[in-house]
């Protein structure tokens, strides 16, 4: 990735103007043409370097719920179990990690009650205990990495 793309990403990770011509404002700040900024953003999205350009919501404020869930899956069963777990639309992501608790998935649902429902359903289907670990307190959400 070239220097200009890095500059664009670092600048826009910090926010975006709420003005009539926000792209023009940002482009001027970077010393480039508005059209170049629009083209570059569009390319970064197409290349999936950016997952989104816009708001990141607090799901809990919208009445939704998130939870992190851990499972101890025997190595031989891992593929089979992950296929079942990943088939749920409520599973936002799922990571395999090198620990006794080796499966870690995140549920995103539109209500807190739904978290327990989906987890019980998953437990029944995979025949293993799942450990629900919802967030109790949040100290920081940065997701702002210098590139």
């Amino acid at each position: 990735m070239d220097t200009l793309n890095r500059k664009i990403i670092n600048l826009l990770q910090a926010g975006f103007p709420l003005s009539e011509e926000p792209y023009l404002e940002v482009a001027r700040h970077l010393g480039i043409e508005e059209q170049e900024l629009l083209d570059r953003l569009s390319n970064l999205l197409d290349e999936k370097i950016l997952s989104r350009f816009g708001p990141m919501y607090d799901a809990q404020k919208l009445g939704g719920a998130f939870s992190l869930v851990a499972v101890r899956v025997p190595e031989d069963d891992f593929d089979k179990v992950s296929e079942i777990v990943n088939s749920y639309p409520e599973v936002a992501h799922n990571y395999k990690r090198d620990h006794d608790y080796n499966m870690w998935y995140v549920l995103a649902t539109d209500s807190p009650e739904k978290i327990d429902e989906v987890n019980s359903d998953i437990e029944k289907k995979i025949g293993m205990k799942v450990f629900n670990m919802p967030k109790l307190e949040e100290y920081y959400i940065g997701l702002r990495l210098p590139v």
Binding site: I8, I9, Q13, G15, L44, I49, G54, M56, D58, L143
Partner: peptide, 11 residues
């Protein structure tokens, strides 16, 4: 804070 951040979301 319904919107936590407004801008690019990187991978």
């Amino acid at each position: 804070k319904v919107i936590k951040r407004f801008g690019v979301v990187v991978r």
